[in-house]
Simulated assay, not measured.
Amino acid sequence: MNLKPIMRILCHQREDRTYKVCDNYLLVCGRCLGIYIGFFFSFIVLLLIYGFFTRSVNVLYAFALIIPMVIDGMSQAFNLRESKNWIRFITGYLAGLSVAYIFYAIISVILATPRFAKLPYFEFIPIAAVMLFLLFILEKSQNSKIIFLKKFFNSIAIFSAVFLVFGVIILYALLFLKLKFFS
Score class of each variant (00 low, 15 high):
L3H: 06
L3W: 10
L3V: 06
I6N: 00
R8Q: 13
I9R: 00
I9Q: 00
L10Q: 06
C11Y: 00
C11F: 00
Q13E: 03
Y25E: 12
L27G: 09
V28N: 01
R31H: 08
C32T: 10
G34I: 07
I35Y: 00
Y36N: 15
G38M: 10
G38K: 04
F41C: 04
F43R: 00
L46K: 11
I49N: 03
Y50E: 03
F53P: 09
S56P: 01
S56A: 10
N58Q: 14
L65R: 09
L65E: 08
I66K: 15
I67D: 01
P68L: 02
Q76R: 08
A77P: 03
F78E: 01
L80G: 12
L80K: 11
E82I: 05
I87R: 08
I90Q: 05
G92C: 14
A95R: 07
G96M: 06
Y101C: 03
A105V: 04
V109I: 09
K118H: 11
Y121L: 12
I125M: 13
I125C: 09
I125S: 04
P126M: 09
A129L: 15
A129Q: 07
M131I: 07
M131G: 03
L138N: 09
S141F: 07
Q142M: 06
F148R: 04
F148W: 14
F153M: 02
N154T: 01
I158V: 15
F163I: 06
L164G: 13
V165F: 12
A173H: 14
L175Q: 00
F176T: 11
F181A: 10
F182P: 00
S183W: 02
S183I: 11
